[in-house]
Amino acid sequence: MENYSVYVPRLVTKRENFAPGHRACIGCGEALAVRLACKALGQKTIIVTATGCIEIISSQLPYTSWRVPWIHTLFENTAAVASGIESGLKILMKKGRIAQQEITVVAMAGDGGTSDIGIQALSGALERGHNFLYLCFDNEAYMNTGIQRSSATPFGASTTTSPAGKVSIGQVTWKKNMPAIAAAHNIPYVATACPSYPIDLMAKVEKGAATPGPAYVHILSVCPTGWRCATDLTIRIGRLAVETGIFPLYEVENGKYRLNFDFPKLRPVTDYMKLQGRFRHLSEDVINKIQQRVSAEYAELKEKASEGKG
C-alpha cells in the first residue's frame, strides 16, 4: 500500500480559489496543480499568468475561474509583470496609499512560457531579487497550441513539431533542467513538485510564498491530451515519474539540496513510458539510453543531496 496522507480534507482548506467551471481538458494535471496551489496560497495573493493553457481555460470573457486578484498580459513577460506588481505594492505600502500587509505575488507559466520564451524575463526577475513566487506548470510541450515541442519536452517524445517518423525518434534533445537554472541564480528557494503528491506540493507552494525574495517551484503536470494517455491515469503517471526517478521531488534551500522522496530502488522508466502514446514508438535501444541517463542524473542528484550542497 502506498503511504498516502489519508483524511486529506482535514489537512487542507475547503475553499477553492480556483473555481470549477474552468475549461481544462478532461483529467488535466495542470488544472489540478493550479487548484492545489491556490489552496496553499490563500486569498492574500495576486496571481500573474502567462498566455497558455492555464490562462485560456480560466479566463474566457466575461467569465473567470479566479477568486483571487489575477492578471494576464502576454506570454513571455510573466516574471516582469510580477516584478512590477511587487514593486508597486511595496511603494504604495511605503507611501501609505494601501494598508501594510503581506500579499504574495505569484507568477504562473507553462514550460514553454518558462524555459523557452519567458526565460529572459524570469532570469531578470530572479537576479533582481523581487519578493515573489514563480510556479512553472510543466506539461512538457506547447499543449495550448497543439502539442508542439518545447525545451522541456523529454528525449524521445513524439510531438507535432518533433514527430516520430521513419528516420526520427521524436524529440532528439534532452529536457532542459529548469530547476537547476533557477537554482543557479542563488535564490533562497527552489523545489520540484507534482500534484500526485498533493500535500507535498501544497507545502512547497506555501514555503515558496513565505520565502523572502524569489522562490521557484517546478511542477510536473500530466497532460492526457498531449501525452496520449487515459484521462484517469493522471495521478498514477505523475507518481510513476517520481518513482522511476524521471522527475525526482527535491528542494534547494539556500543552495542546499534535499531529496524529499527517495527510493531504495527506482522503478524502470518503462513503467512510466508504456502508459503514454508519446513514447509508444521508441525502440528498446532508445529506452535503454533514457534509462541510463535517468539513473545517472538521479545518482548525481542524490550525491548533491547527501553532500547537502549545490
Partner: peptide
C-alpha cells in the same frame, strides 16, 4: 521616493510598468 526597477530589456520595462500600474502605482 520611487521603486526603480533596472529591468533586463525594454520588453520587461513595459511589462513591469503594466504590473505596477495594475497594482495602482
Amino acid at each position: 521616493d520611487t521603486q526603480y526597477i533596472p529591468v533586463e530589456s525594454e520588453h520587461s520595462a513595459m511589462s513591469a510598468c503594466l504590473g505596477a500600474s495594475a497594482a495602482g502605482a
